[in-house]
Nucleic acid binder design. Structure first.
Length: 635
RNA sequence: GCCAAUGUGGCUCAGGGGUAGAGCAAUUCACUCGUAAUGAAUAGGUCGUGGGUUCGAUUCCCACCAUUGGCUCCA
């Protein structure tokens, strides 16, 4: 996602000359190659080509803004996954009405069918050009380009932008576009810099594709867990309890409980030992780990601010993670190499003082629950245990159905991090990262590299997931830590009688339950797989005279371990079905005279359809099979 | 924390300087019904909170709180 304003070194845009100006087929377009008038055909179904297309759309937007408000300063305007944006510096805030104006002006520019002209300038001339135009951000961008860089520009009519390209050949190509939102964004992504105004938009070669995209977006939003999770009574929030502190309602709590029991059993079956450690501790504990120095702003520290730094006063903080607590288990007595690996797990509540603008439904909260593990290891166990952790995570994610949409990120340190984020030496970091890289490559894990995404104590494999708005967060993380054991004085006696410092893997098996529940609600549009659904079946008596039998059936199924309710209101069967369906109960058991007489239930299922009348035991057997196999359906 | 939008009964929304209205939901009554809404009646809101302007504010202004989309952050 390079900003438009970089000069470039190479390209992958092919070598064809003098291709026709308008190509055949609606998804094929002629692009202008960055090094001059060389053109090549590209395909909108190709991600790189789409970016080229939308990059031109962002230039058109910038041109429109400059026409409407010439005093506006331009920052950067790249194409992104589903569209583009441009950052502007303008005293007055853009309004929704302004977006309409900009769109109108953009339409004009498209109609003008302005060709994009490529040219290069020597550094000094480029600088002077932008300086004269008052484009202070562009001047900064030019100054930051490496010496050997080619400084290139694209001109379309009355508008010229510093840009490495490539672009489509003419503004006339951008047939369909829409500006979608306005947001604040810091210049160069640094919160110390001025906040600019970012306008997001998207563009397509024709109106039909644009409409299809916008419709799809609307459809996705209908799955928003923050909406249906509240409607379906999984959770709610209360103003006077506070941001990021959701109330998990009975349905949400049941699903989380089912998942938690499953995970804890799974962990136990894989050789983990459960611990129960305190939810808060004196600041001393966090000082050893480094959390007090690195993440104090992110912690809930108790007591007066003045006392927090007063060593003569006792000061407690809620835990933002479990690691230093679980290390005390290892430290409880002297350990031998024979004690390792020691696999400690705990389903913890964690508390993190997120910035106020960060909270989002159940995905980003201030108190959450996580099944954490800390594996304390000898060096020779690192690889196999890492594999074990990854295997566990993949098994878990696959079982709940989220794995197929996950991406893997190898999160590394950035030695140049200006905020002094990382602890440890260059050697330690390189060793940890080399080790993790080797393990990942051995396992054939396909990953992206995230520079400056590591924990302060080590590199991470982050398993990422996107919500319905396309926003990505970490679902599961597996981290190699070669620093903290030493800080806490953790040692084991090796076979040769010498003391050694162990390695530690920090890992989660199912990320945090609140976040996972959110993703599951979105993935299944509320129709959670039956094994984890709060209400697995609802019994619907046709009339009041069938209520006794309904409860008989409920009693039987409940005793078998199923979660079943009875709708005993004096309503018509149609209404009961409608409401149960809206509440996304998968199995509806209608009981009337026939069923009472036959000791059956008439089963109407969300996915299997009408299953006819079944003896209660037969239905129970089917349901058991579905639950045991953790069957899931695409929605 | 920063930029912006939003905040009217449980939900979806209308209204608007003279103390509020609809549909759904809820409650009550009648109906006892065979696969996506039976009917009638009743009740429910100091219009997010606190200040200010005004004879008078839910409506205008300010601050705060919460929600939403971004940015930054995310052990």
């Amino acid at each position: 996602m390079e900003p438009c304003s970089h000069a470039s070194q190479s390209n992958t845009w092919g070598m064809a000359f003098n291709m026709p100006r308008r190509s055949q087929g609606r998804t094929r377009y002629v692009l202008q190659k960055i090094t001059g008038g060389i053109c090549v055909m590209v395909d909108f179904s190709n991600a790189e080509d789409r970016k080229c297309f939308r990059h031109t759309a962002s230039h058109i937007m910038a041109q429109a803004v400059k026409r409407l408000w010439p005093e506006t300063k331009l920052a950067i305007g790249p194409a992104i996954d589903d569209g583009f944006y441009y950052d502007f510096d303008r005293d007055e805030a853009f309004s929704e009405a302004d977006l309409k104006k900009i769109e109108e002006e953009m339409k004009k520019i498209v109609k003008e069918d302005l060709p994009l002209e490529y040219y290069e300038l020597p550094r000094e001339e480029a600088r002077k050009f932008m300086e004269e135009k008052g484009e202070i951000y562009k001047v900064q961008l030019i100054d930051d380009l490496p010496d050997e860089a080619t400084i290139s520009f694209y001109k379309q009519g009355d508008f010229t932008d510093l840009c490495k390209g490539p672009h489509v050949e003419s503004t006339g190509e951008i047939k369909a576009f829409k500006l979608t939102s306005i947001a604040g964004a810091y210049w160069r992504g640094d919160s110390k810099n001025k906040m600019l105004q970012r306008i997001y938009g998207t563009a397509f070669p024709d109106k039909a594709q644009l409409k299809e995209y916008l419709d799809k977006l609307e459809e996705a939003k209908k799955r928003d867990h923050n909406k249906i999770g509240r409607e379906l009574e999984y959770f709610t929030t209360v103003d006077y309890i506070g941001q990021g502190l959701p109330i998990i309602l009975p349905k949400g709590a049941k699903t989380i409980q089912v998942m938690q029991r499953w995970i804890e059993d799974l962990e136990a079956s894989r050789g983990c030992e459960l611990t129960m450690t305190p939810y808060f501790a004196k600041r001393d504990l966090y000082k050893i780990s480094g959390h007090w120095d690195h993440y104090r702003d992110g912690m809930f520290v108790m007591g007066d601010k003045a006392d927090q730094d007063d060593e003569t006063k006792e000061c407690f903080a809620l835990r933002p993670m479990t690691c230093p607590f679980q290390y005390q288990v290892f430290l409880n007595r002297q350990r031998s190499y024979r004690d390792l690996p020691m696999r400690l797990t705990e389903t913890s509540k964690l508390f993190r003082n997120e910035d106020s603008g960060e909270m989002h439904g159940l995905i980003r909260v201030r108190q959450f629950t996580i099944s954490e593990g800390h594996y304390i290891l000898r060096p020779d166990q690192l690889e196999s245990e890492f594999k074990e952790c990854l295997d566990l995570a993949k098994y878990v994610l696959d079982t709940v159905g989220l794995l197929e949409d996950c991406t893997f990120r190898f999160s590394q340190w950035d030695p140049a991090n200006p905020k002094n984020k990382y602890e440890g030496t260059k050697e330690q970091w390189e060793k940890a990262q080399d080790t993790m890289g080797k393990i990942l490559d051995d396992l054939g894990v396909k990953y992206d590299i995230g520079i400056d995404e590591a924990a302060f104590y080590g590199p991470k494999l982050d398993i990422q997931y996107k919500n319905v708005f396309g926003k990505e967060d970490t679902l599961v993380t597996i981290q190699i830590d070669m620093l903290l054991a030493e800080k806490y004085g953790m040692e084991y006696v090796d076979a040769d009688g010498t003391k050694k410092t162990p390695y530690i893997i920090h890992r989660t098996s199912l990320g945090c339950y609140e976040r996972t529940l959110a993703y599951l609600i979105e993935k299944y549009a509320g129709w959670l797989p039956v094994w984890m659904a709060a209400e697995q079946a609802r019994i619907l008596p046709i009339s009041d005279s069938h209520i006794d039998y309904a409860y008989e059936v409920k009693d039987k199924l409940t005793k078998m371990g199923f979660r079943v309710e009875v709708d005993d209101r004096s309503e018509k069967i149609g209404k009961k079905i409608r409401e149960a369906t809206k509440e996304k109960v998968q199995y509806l058991l209608v009981v009337g005279d026939q069923e009472v007489a036959d000791k059956t239930v008439a089963v109407r299922a969300r996915f299997e359809g009408d299953m006819g009348s079944l003896p209660v035991d037969d239905f129970a057997a089917k349901l058991k099979e579905i639950v045991d196999n953790k069957v899931r359906h695409e929605v």
